[in-house]
Amino acid sequence: MAKVIMTADDSTSIRQMVSFTLNQAGYDVIEAEDGLDAADKLAGIHVDMLLTDLNMPNKNGLELIEWVRSMPRFKFMPIIMLTTEAETEMKQKGKAAGATGWIVKPFKPEQLLALVKRILR
């Protein structure tokens, strides 16, 4: 069964790029346009991994990570942050909230795929 990945990002172009890259590699992708949307969608489905932007309207990435980790069924799910720069403070906060790792924008589709494959194998 194909693994399901959620991408939460307020940028449509990045979301589409992520979706397309992961779809091509055989993953099922669910898009969410901000933290609140992500939380709503996560309430009803099974997801194997979350890729989230940190700066988003409504519920930002940090809040989303905290919320996800508070759900028993996502206690151990891998969460990758899409950070815009090597911003250590944000990254640290994300790690503290329970994120697994990060990828720094800009990244190439291959880099994203390599990371997802590593974590989900």
Partner: peptide, 23 residues
């Protein structure tokens, strides 16, 4: 906040798709 996020997104996505000057 809206303004900040708009610039942030333009920067991030711009760099992703090769618009380095804009980023």
């Amino acid at each position: 906040n809206r303004l900040f996020r708009a610039m942030h997104t333009i920067k991030g996505s711009g760099s992703m798709f090769g618009f380095d000057a804009i980023a």
